[in-house]
Design a binder for these strands. Sequence first.
DNA 1: CGGGATTTTGATTCCAATCAAGTCCGGTGG
DNA 2: CCACCGGACTTGATTGGAATCAAAATCCCG
Lengths: 229, 229
Amino acid sequence: MPPQSTSALSHSDHGVLAQVFLNSQAASGARPQLGAIQSYREHQEIYSETGEANRFYKIISGVVRICRFLSDGRRQIESFHSEGEIFGLEYGSNYTMTAEAASDCSLLVYRRTHSDILSVNDPQLSQELLSFAIRTLSRAQTHSLVLGRRSAIEKVAHFLLECANYSKGGKTVIVKMGRSDIGDYLGLTIETISRTLSQMERDRLISLTNTRQIELLQPEKLKEICGWY
Amino acid sequence: MPPQSTSALSHSDHGVLAQVFLNSQAASGARPQLGAIQSYREHQEIYSETGEANRFYKIISGVVRICRFLSDGRRQIESFHSEGEIFGLEYGSNYTMTAEAASDCSLLVYRRTHSDILSVNDPQLSQELLSFAIRTLSRAQTHSLVLGRRSAIEKVAHFLLECANYSKGGKTVIVKMGRSDIGDYLGLTIETISRTLSQMERDRLISLTNTRQIELLQPEKLKEICGWY
DNA sequence: CGGGATTTTGATTCCAATCAAGTCCGGTGG
DNA sequence: CCACCGGACTTGATTGGAATCAAAATCCCG
């Protein structure tokens, strides 16, 4: 099913990139690089590892997961992205990762080739892209650190704190994805995720209000478990 | 011991960045942002996670490792970098990673603040930085994929192929780092690295000419083991 | 050569994967 | 409203593979 395309009425609420893009479009007038809004349903593929990397996206709403599949069917989730974040910038001419909607979401789409991205005729745009790329890189590095850790409890503790940072909802974390997504993100099975969360609850570290709603009772202890922060 | 500073005589052989940098220095004339050459000995720290992120580097020669330490002393190596590569670009005002010389090396040093990096008055520079950042991001993502893998043999197989790609020395791989570095890069112990390599040799996948020199007898099989490529 | 560091090999332990039931929950239709 | 169904999650028992602990072998540098 192709994504549903909507007319791009007002981009004014969607940050610098939207505006920059529109400005550069108006200014140059050359190639018609459309910054359209597209909607995707949960589980729908946005692009796949084989596709030509001719566009990137900024999230208006929803959660997107970036992942890669192995020949035996296993999946590694590299990152989750939510509102305001950019994804889809890649080095070569083809995507090396797959992007999927982890929830229903709507996206701003930018049609650009690799060389367009690197072209310098839009300094403001390239500045935002660089800033974004460095931020994403930082997150990828932290993710590597988590995956390299030995124990399950350290990984899960980090995941909870990461979610808490994100949602800024204080000590109550709303996990937007299922156990399967968490497992593929942390390199653990769903059984281990579940067991670890149960153990944490027994240890009074957290309280499982709901399957997807977790209260952090002792965030400091969780940070200790992580070994950094 | 402070790094040994050498005068920057000729940068002409060190790629676009060096030239761009010098050009912008000459053109603007404003802040004296020195692009000096520094030499580091093996194991010497280049910057640490606590330091102010006020410079980035381009490698002239040698190998650098980017890593992070945990409170219990464990280390995760995020990446190795060698000649021609840039490292040290980070998102915030302080480094979140540590850079160390994995071998003796000499570096071009660029003094820049975070905002300098993002400033747009040097389009050619920001283009090179963006290109580099996206490439580094891609490598970090692949590294995540490797770390998330379950088995030791998959990790080691990937490492060997990565080394082979790098050195382009055909089927013979010269590993520049010790087992300990490999272990911390792959999230395995040195014993497991050693056992896995021995097993690979018994299986006629590789031949251990020397501790640090490995011949890939069946690269195709190694790729199969990895599950992608 | 010699001695320390690095690497390999061996024996055992421990933790997460796997295999297998059970439980919970949301939705659907009677 | 409730009985039923199906998918997601939890819990349990067992297995397998890497970590750990320990020791031998090898490399490397003077």
